[in-house]
């Protein structure tokens, strides 16, 4: 137990954000956020609110690999430029 090679030292649950550490969470999605390019004025509120940080700032591209479809972006968009569409209907 106390032999040198058996000592692990200081290790805690500290972690840093990492892309996709929980896998491709986009597979969990039931509703897909779909952006209306004509209504969007690129105010970036969706980018601010997205809890998964899967909206790109440049071009406001939604990353469907990780978007879980929570709908926060659609709820927050002041111009109703994002609509939640059921995946099977997409």
């Amino acid at each position: 137990m106390n032999s040198e090679k058996n000592i692990v030292g200081f290790i805690t649950s500290l972690s840093k954000p990492k892309r996709g550490s929980s896998g491709k969470t986009g597979e969990w999605r039931v509703f897909r956020p779909v952006k209306d390019e004509e209504r969007c004025n690129q105010c970036l509120l969706c980018w601010v609110y997205c809890p998964e940080a899967c909206i790109e700032k440049d071009g406001i591209e939604i990353g469907y690999e990780y978007c879980k479809g929570c709908g926060v972006c659609a709820q927050e968009c002041p111009r109703e430029a994002i609509t939640m569409v059921k995946e099977e209907k997409w």
Partner: peptide, 22 residues
């Protein structure tokens, strides 16, 4: 920036406990 207490998988967990004992 770092966070504390998020998921720790079976491959990483036991060492956090051994460290407390140490």
């Amino acid at each position: 920036p770092a966070t504390h207490g998020s998921v720790v998988y079976p491959d990483d967990f036991s060492e956090t406990r051994q460290s407390m004992h140490e």
